[in-house]
């Protein structure tokens, strides 16, 4: 099952650019883009950083495709 996420929506809602997010999380802009497009699943460490960054519960950020949001 594919993991999908709401990172793009959350980022835009908070008015954060991909570059700013990359700087804050110490990752490349390409990685931000790949995660947002669901082309790359972040490591547990990065996933936890993302949860802390957006201050949302994990199920709000990541969920399995087909699962009820």
């Amino acid at each position: 099952m594919r993991v999908v996420n709401h990172i793009r929506e959350l980022r835009l809602k908070n008015g954060i650019t991909q570059i700013r997010m990359a700087q804050d999380l110490k990752i490349t802009r390409q990685t931000v883009n790949a995660i947002e497009k669901n082309k790359y699943n972040p490591s547990l460490e990065l996933a936890l950083k993302l949860i802390k960054y957006f201050n949302v519960p994990i199920e709000e950020l990541f969920y399995l495709e087909g699962d009820k949001e």
Binding site: I27, T28, T31, A34, L46
Partner: peptide, 12 residues
């Protein structure tokens, strides 16, 4: 241009 964005990370 990119500030302190690293050139490589876990995906790289």
């Amino acid at each position: 241009k990119m500030g302190n964005i690293p050139e490589a990370d876990e995906r790289t």
